[in-house]
Amino acid sequence: MVNSTSSTPHQLQKVEINVDCGEAFGFWQCGPDEELMPLIDAANIACGGHAGDPVTIRRTVALAKKHGIKVGAHPGFPDKVGFGRRVLAMTSEQAYAEMLYQVGALKVFLDEAGVPLNHIKPHGMWYIMMQNNEELNDAAMRAISHFKVPVYGMPNTLHESGAKKYGIPFIPEAFVDVNYNSEGILLGVPGSRKMTTEDIYQAAISLGKKGVVPAVDHSLVDVGVKGVPFTICLHSDLKTCRENVAAARKAVNEINQELYNRS
């Protein structure tokens, strides 16, 4: 059994599940947030960039509060047409200001509801590009540092080193409903193969016990979470999201009971 008693306040005590929520916009709905909340530990709420609007943000904060779910900001490229999953060119100044703007928008609604901001996790292509784009990563991390909360990111990438540079607590994250390539680079939804619920369950078990996960070509890749609590991300916009999250929850509960003696 892993001993996690020496963890700092910002470190996880067990493996957790985070899901992207509040990704509706106006009359367009996306994701069964109400059904997913009881199955997750943290909700990443869209901040109006790739999805979300003021009413949706406020309603999603209230929903998370109702279920006692931790809330994180999920800022994305300001590209609702592409759902934040297209490459968008931004200067450092634009990326810095956009991060402050979007997280600040969510923070107002959290303050109103009396809910703390738990973390920040960039969305989609912004998150993917921050793995290896130093200029974009640095601008985003400088902005994130103002909020004094952890950032969720991929270990052994600029996510981790960029957070360290600005003194931001880093929470390691891994994915089970989308794929990495054979070199451990996250591909995201557009570049991934379809994952079944059994695939997701087995991937989560493998991550929790061995720190490796099948890549898009089925080779095993080490994503830097072996032997430490981490958070698993799933996407609420996939058609099978309910089943996907339920499969991951089953795996995570088994892992936590076996390795961390926690439910």
Rank of each mutant, 00 (worst) to 15 (best):
N3E: 15
T5I: 10
P9H: 02
Q29T: 13
P32F: 12
P32L: 06
P32H: 13
I40H: 06
I45P: 14
G48V: 04
H50Q: 10
D53H: 11
T60P: 03
T60V: 09
K65Y: 01
V71S: 02
G72M: 02
P75M: 08
G76C: 07
P78V: 15
G82K: 01
M90V: 14
T91A: 05
S92V: 00
Y96M: 05
M99N: 00
L100Q: 07
Y101H: 15
G104A: 08
G104Q: 00
F109G: 04
V115P: 07
P116H: 02
H119R: 04
P122N: 06
M125S: 12
Y127N: 07
M129T: 03
E134S: 09
P150Y: 02
G153E: 07
P155H: 09
S161H: 05
A163Q: 03
G167E: 03
A174N: 06
V176E: 09
N179H: 14
N181M: 04
L187Q: 11
G191Q: 13
G191S: 08
M195T: 05
T196I: 08
T197Q: 13
S206I: 08
G208L: 08
K209A: 01
K209S: 09
V216T: 12
D217A: 10
D217F: 10
L220Y: 10
G227P: 02
P229D: 03
F230H: 14
L238W: 04
R242L: 14
V252T: 14
